[in-house]
Nucleic acid binder design. Structure first.
Lengths: 255, 255
DNA sequence: ACCCTAGTGTGGTATAGAGCATTCGAACGA
DNA sequence: TCGTTCGAATGCTCTATACCACACTAGGGT
């Protein structure tokens, strides 16, 4: 049973194999055991060298979808059914993944000079132009978060004037229009009281539970340039933030 | 200038090279440019094949310490000086990394039957024995967090009776005594009000700011078995949680 | 001055092959 | 029946080689 992989100019072979395996994982092939074909079997099946087959498995491993055991084989992680390949996701994608309908209300969208905090986070000179996008975020018509994104103007000129982020996803535009790949992010989480504006926007009752989860995030592209600094306040009672961490080959350092 | 790499039985060659490069990065070789030697140069320097040198660089890349650009070279991430190889860190390590002195007060340490939540998180039968370790965590003598860890008794028998976790790190014991490698973690963050006990333990003033950051975490070993379920409450005013996320080869899936 | 081209160096992909340690079951012997 | 040995399968490391696409530079031509 030979398999059709696209020839020269397409996506690399090992990624094509990775895609196929991912689909099979999500389709539930490999059953409850979750045992994938061995490297040698995959090499045979796809008519590639063993190293190429191995690379496909390793890519899945790096995404946290499978794990390997010497002498036994490669197995599907139980959590792999839910998640895909993306590890840096946007609010839009997160909400959609929960089966809810996201939308946004743009509160502010303007180019402004960077203040100290923004300049430091984005590693740009003070007062450089920055696209600021402040949005109230909804899931199923309920306000969940206030999100303020700052992007160096030079990275994506005319970002705000050319797009309407009421429905468009910022990440999608960055990727598809400006060709910017987000590769790395640093996030901090803090619990705090909501201020008056936040209480009003997030529809919080006057007396109780005026608590927000503050998330600050700097996202970098693949060449270590800061692309966005996002400062968010999530409704404390209605939102929970989830992240997955992989210890990439956690080997002890010898002293 | 040839380099001394240990022979047959030691750590794999590419990891030895990785270690050397990491030390050089942290020592500030490669200067402000941050340009590492090319794959071919490394192969020459360490007398290994290019694929092996490449593997060392890739390992650093997966840990988020460097990034590569075709046609140009491999470069140090600016954030790489602070961080090491570990991505799954414990409270003890986190506090130490901030230059503060951690210690703990054990509030509870006993084997108990698992309730529904714990059983579900750890994927074990209801009422199976679980080692429960509840600690008040300090940094520089100030109470910062209440942390309750649950571990399946079968994973690490006699964990609580044989160790005193006032000063010992749970992760260290897991790794060094039981040989358990933590490979993967799922964390959720939530902002919440502190209850009476938490206010008391965390030394919170009566009127104001009784806010905690709740972090729930399930950690898996390399074979996808849940090893610990930790539920924590961090002092809202004094603690901020930081995580780094890498998009491991974020390639678009074709539909 | 300007543009184009050729060359060199870079990381990324792919092949073919080898030996290693671990795992597990089947065959074997006590 | 029990334990041991052996072999097959598996993932991991490592070598050697090759070609590609991309980035940059130096030269040469206009």
């Amino acid at each position: 049973m030979t398999e059709m992989l696209k020839g020269n100019t397409a996506r690399p072979l090992y990624l094509q194999i990775q895609d196929i395996l991912l689909k099979e994982i999500q389709a539930g092939v490999y059953g409850t055991e979750g045992k994938l074909p061995s490297e040698r079997e995959l090499a045979e099946r796809f008519k590639v060298s063993r190293m190429t087959a191995r690379q496909a498995l390793q890519s899945l491993h790096q995404h946290g979808l499978v794990y390997a055991q010497v002498g036994k084989g490669t197995f599907v992680r139980r959590a792999a059914f839910k998640q895909g390949l993306e590890s840096l996701s946007s609010f839009t994608e997160d909400i959609r993944a929960l089966g809810q309908v996201p939308h946004s209300q743009v509160l502010f969208a303007q180019v402004m000079p960077a203040d100290e905090i923004v300049a430091q986070r984005l590693q740009i000179p003070l007062h450089s132009p920055v696209s600021v996008l402040k949005r109230l975020r909804f899931a199923n018509q309920q306000p969940l978060a206030i999100e303020t994104a700052h992007l160096p103007y030079a990275c994506c000129p005319n970002l705000l004037s050319r797009h309407d982020f009421t429905h468009e996803s910022l990440y999608r535009v960055l990727q598809e229009v400006y060709g910017i790949r987000l590769a790395y992010a640093e996030q901090t989480f803090r619990a705090d009281l909501a201020d008056a504006t936040e209480r009003r926007l997030l529809n919080m009752a006057d007396g109780a539970l005026n608590i927000v989860l503050r998330v600050a995030r700097v996202t970098f592209n693949s060449t270590d340039q800061p692309i966005e600094y996002v400062s968010s306040a999530y409704h404390g009672a209605h939102y929970e933030f989830q992240v997955s961490l992989r210890a990439v080959r956690a080997q002890v350092m010898l002293p």
